[in-house]
Structure formats: structure tokens, C-alpha cells
């Protein structure tokens, strides 16, 4: 319940206040979003398997996002930013698909 309220609240906040993204964050926001989605799907899988821990979720959510952003940032510093961001996206994509497959098996038993 609170999850849905949070989702709606996020959308409403973004639409109403139209927060300006800081310029230095702009290249990293897409990667951070994908990392956060990965954390969310992982958490959903854990809760379906009854191994969900709010502490682990919070830590993994924050660290996932931070690490993804940092990797790409370092990549930008050493001149391989676009390649590294592709690598991070591929890895996160694979993880999201794997977790989604697990969720599918638990929910649909197929």
C-alpha cells in the first residue's frame, strides 16, 4: 500500500516541482535508474522467496545506484565512459532478466 503511494508520490513530485537535475548528474541518471530497477526486481524476488530483509534492500538499493554511477564516472575520467556504461547496462540487464525469470517461476510456476 505504502509502496503504491510512494510510486504515485514520486511521479506527482516530479511532475509538480519539475526538479532541475544538477548538470554533473545528467549523464549518470539513466544508469542509476537501471541500477535501482535491478535492486527493485531483486527485492521483489527476495520477498517472494520470503528472504526479504528491509536492511539488505535499503543497503543494496543505495549501493547499487552509487556503484553504477561511480563506475561510469570513473570510466568517464579514464576515457572509457561510454564503453563502461554499456558494460554496466548489459550486466544490470542480465540481472534484471534473471531475477524476473525467478519471479515468473515463483508466481506462475512456469
Amino acid at each position: 500500500m505504502l509502496a503504491i503511494i510512494g510510486l504515485i508520490l514520486g511521479v506527482v513530485l516530479a511532475v509538480v516541482f519539475r526538479p532541475e537535475m544538477p548538470f554533473w548528474l545528467q549523464p549518470y541518471l539513466p544508469i542509476m535508474i537501471v541500477a535501482a530497477m535491478d535492486a527493485l526486481v531483486g527485492a521483489a524476488r527476495a520477498s517472494l522467496k520470503h528472504t526479504f530483509s528491509d536492511r539488505v534492500f535499503a543497503v543494496s538499493f543505495i549501493s547499487n545506484v552509487a556503484i553504477a554511477a561511480v563506475i561510469v564516472w570513473v570510466g568517464d575520467l579514464i576515457g572509457v565512459g561510454s564503453q563502461l556504461s554499456t558494460a554496466v547496462l548489459v550486466v544490470l540487464g542480465i540481472r534484471i532478466f534473471t531475477n524476473a525469470a525467478e519471479i515468473r517461476r515463483s508466481v506462475l510456476r512456469a
Binding site: 509502496a3 510512494g6 508520490l9 514520486g10 511521479v11 516530479a14 526538479p19 535508474i33 526479504f52 538499493f61
Partner: peptide, 21 residues
């Protein structure tokens, strides 16, 4: 519960970020 709260905050942040992006 703290679980609910964690989900709420996480989804709020993600939704915010997605819409901004």
C-alpha cells in the same frame, strides 16, 4: 512496517528519477 516504508521510499525515488529523466 519498515519493509513497507523501504519499498515506499525506494519506489518514490525511482519514480521521481524516471519521470525527471
Amino acid at each position: 512496517s519498515r519493509t513497507q516504508l523501504a519499498w515506499g521510499i525506494a519506489l518514490c525515488l525511482v519514480a521521481l528519477a524516471v519521470v525527471v529523466q
